[in-house]
Design a protein around this nucleic acid. Structure first.
Lengths: 404, 404
DNA sequence: ATTTTTTACTCAAGTAACTTGAATTAAATA
DNA sequence: TATTTAATTCAAGTTACTTGAGTAAAAAAT
């Protein structure tokens, strides 16, 4: 299969700057600062962003004109003229995220703060491209009208799908990717169908970005998200930006080997993590032991009943996950590793509780302020919200990496 | 294991731009383009960098004035007025890199193209800070005078040391880090002692940057370097920049577990890669089998003699390395993984030849243009050269991440 | 109660570095 | 030899920044 990855490598040069691009950059810098430190006055912003007060004043005037910032009273209590404070107006614009799976499309509409304004999902008749396009269009249109938003303030749509793209061995193994979408420029197709800016990303990365915007990863600039989806994915955020790797396929943690000579996986390896710690592996383990379970609800029920079979699966899964998380820590040195996805939250909690992380890890430090592993906050909404969050992130966050 | 929500404060703000910073950025953009595509004319540069010809003309005038670019004849053969081509002048400036190990300091002086102009190493009487500072100062001064360079064109010095930093469990295990250097701001100490800009980096990352500037990774923007040093490290380059992780300790591949329940490692884990695939592990394996070997030369000699014991160590090491490289591929999706370091090159070659990489990897693609694993080119000079290369990289490469 | 200090902000002028469009140059081709 | 094509320069225009002087207003000092 030759899937044209939308994130394929291009031979590009880094682009130069000019006054106009500079202003665009500075707008983002100011917006990003206010969002993180609101309310904030001009002088404070100028000091933090390395700009003159006058420059900030001009930029704020333009942001206020666009409705992205609003004045919000004066700061009293300090010496000197009271600063006129500005706040970010999170409802001035919105974005939409859609998570596509072979059988279902899930849609989230969020504001600029990452709050979910609308949620809906719809079953897909089949996994064909045309069917998906129609379902996505319907969902998106309904989301916008139901939430009473103006199309004018629509920043774009993030489409979230299981990866990896362009790797036949893994894609077909276990059907983690969507079949029959070969040679499709997914970004362009959806951009044309929806008439808006579109970003395509895999579920784990989108989930990570969602957690950073409005979940447990708020304030973290380097962390990883282990996403329980159809398979198992890892979203990697480093320096505040998603790491895609050379072909956009970074984070394929499901096929990392945690048991040399272990269970055979369809990808050709033996002992892949996905064979031990994924929804499919849980269902398989239970059915092999004669326990009926078809979906997440069944798993939750078994957990409530203290099913010994589920418990032994949890033990084994936690053992393999611990090993994999140790690898991730040692290779990527994240501030924390977050667990979440479409797995029921009590199951994730049970896994987190059973983890026994390796001592020999760069993350095993005395001076930690947060736990090495955290549970994700947004449940099954995470990935779709993450798609939307990516659009917001792109709009607000400056892409320059110069720090003061 | 506790789960807690996080709300970390924002330490740094991204800085705004102005005309002056813009020019500085554009100078780097142009320099970076010419270095990668020389010789190049103004119009060509302008098209690629998204700038007007006039802007490029002005920037080139200034770069030429500073001696960083030189005109180099006209491009003939095409229609239209022949472009005046410019070349990068690699000998207009230089930088120095020093690799520090507990017993030795190695010094490389390179030009802007990454060519090694001077090399010298000196034994360290002990591993104390004062001893290291003196040795480094002497080495650096001798390097500059011996290569006949002007101090004025000295861009800075890269200090390379084994990591990780600040992780007691791993640092003290096997003595991979330098003892007694706790709580020292190494960068500041050396910057004051040498009177120049200083960067401190671990050996694996430095080696990776060196390979990118003047080795087998030329032209690659995302790749990893497995470095055989005192222990085993991984340098990660993504998007052309080194990935350090949250605490600068990313790439600690030596303590990734490749054999569940395997050999006990001093870090507290069992089955660490470093126990199977490192110089120390080879020497230990040989001595346990009654074969005398004390250093790299002995290993090379045993390889030439087709030592069966060494051969069986190679087989086992390659097996574990293959597994680890598979992990790295799946987690980071690099364009290639490079092997090198202070291990003798024939040994590295033998290891590469014995690798049996997992099929289930995102790197196992039909359309590959380079091998999944490459052997590093610069031998034991790599890390010191990498330190120097990091300084050059910082001077030349723009840190903005906007592509055309 | 008044003055002084301190800080935030605005106005107007000045400046750096970009873009644009017209003019110039020179090789390749007709 | 004339024409086409493309690179480069010149001069003018534009954007968005900085600087410095001036104004405003609250807190602190008198």
């Amino acid at each position: 299969m030759t899937v044209e990855s939308t994130m394929a490598k291009r031979h590009t040069s880094i682009i130069g700057g000019n006054a106009c691009r500079n202003r665009s950059h500075n707008r983002r810098v100011v917006l990003d600062f206010v969002r993180a430190n609101e309310p904030a006055g001009r002088a404070e912003i100028a000091r933090s962003c390395g700009l003159s007060v006058q420059a900030v004043s001009n930029i704020i005037e333009s942001l206020e004109h666009d409705g992205l910032l609003q004045a919000d009273g004066h700061r009293l209590g300090a010496r000197g003229k009271p600063a006129l404070q500005y706040r970010f107006d999170p409802d001035r614009a919105f974005s939409v995220g859609v998570e596509l799976r072979p059988d279902v499309a899930m849609c989230a509409l969020i504001n600029l703060s990452g709050e979910m304004i609308f949620w809906e999902q719809s079953e897909l008749a089949d996994a064909s491209l045309s069917c998906a396009i129609e379902a996505v269009s319907n969902l998106v249109n309904r989301a916008i009208s139901a939430s009473g938003r103006d199309q004018k303030s629509w920043l774009g749509t993030g489409i979230v799908m299981p990866g990896p793209f362009g790797v036949s061995e893994i894609s077909f193994a276990g059907g983690t990717s969507l079949p029959g979408w070969d040679n499709v420029d997914i970004r362009r197709v959806f951009s044309e169908a929806l008439g808006c800016e579109v970003i395509v990303e895999n579920d784990a990365t989108a989930a990570a970005i969602s957690e950073r915007m409005s979940g447990v990863a708020r304030g973290l600039d380097s962390f990883c998200f282990v996403y329980f989806g159809t398979g198992l994915g890892l979203g990697v955020i480093s320096g505040g930006h998603a790491q895609g790797g050379a072909m956009g396929n970074a984070g394929e943690i499901g096929h990392v080997i945690t048991a040399s000579g272990g269970l055979s996986c369809a990808c050709g390896n033996r002992g892949c993590l996905e064979m031990y710690a994924s929804r499919a592996s849980a269902l398989r383990y239970l059915s092999d032991s004669g326990v009926a379970a078809a979906n997440g609800n069944d798993l939750s029920a078994l957990l409530r009943e203290n099913s010994p079979v589920l418990s032994s699966w949890l033990d084994r899964a936690a053992e393999h996950l611990s090993r994999a998380i140790g690898m991730v820590e040692n290779l990527l040195d994240p501030e924390a590793v977050i667990l979440g996805g479409v797995m029921p939250e009590p199951i994730v909690a049970a896994l987190v509780a059973r983890l026994d992380l390796p001592r020999g890890s760069v993350s095993n430090r005395k001076d930690r302020t947060i736990a090495r592993v955290l549970q994700g906050s947004s449940g099954r909404h995470t990935a779709a919200m993450g798609g939307a969050a990516m659009i917001v992130h792109q709009t607000i966050t400056p892409s320059i990496t110069v720090y003061s």
